[in-house]
């Protein structure tokens, strides 16, 4: 981990190739979602929408999630599950990242 080959350093990712641009992803606990639409309103990438009064991610290529977590923080009923951080390849390859975790106290 944490290493970029010469080829990766020279290549530039293509924005519309899903193999090179793995975007962030959030899931919704649909049983909890009340359809208030706060997450849809604040999403900076406009990647969320309301379908049948439930929040959901838009279809590609409009699901440009940056994994900022604003939706999870604003959700009044904790229905947002942060599932997958974005991972770019080639020149913008994400290196030395681990799994997403909430703030930890480290006292166990």
């Amino acid at each position: 981990m944490g290493y970029m080959t010469l080829l990766e350093r020279f290549r530039i990712p293509t924005y519309n190739d899903p193999n090179e641009t793995i975007l962030g992803r959030v899931d919704f606990d649909l049983a909890r979602c009340t359809g208030c639409g706060m997450c849809v309103k604040i999403c900076p990438a406009s990647a969320l929408e309301l379908v049948d009064k439930k929040a959901t991610m838009k279809e590609p290529p409009d699901d440009q999630c940056m994994f900022c977590g604003d939706c999870q923080a604003v959700c009044p009923v904790d229905a947002v599950i942060m599932k997958r951080p974005y991972r770019w390849t080639s020149f913008y390859k994400v290196i030395e990242h681990g799994e997403p975790k909430p703030p930890r106290l480290f006292t166990d």
Binding site: H97, E99, P102
Partner: peptide, 15 residues
């Protein structure tokens, strides 16, 4: 802010 946007979330860990 509109609503209560502040709160803890999950985020990538870094090596």
């Amino acid at each position: 802010p509109v609503g209560e946007p502040d709160g803890m979330i999950s985020r990538q860990t870094h090596a």
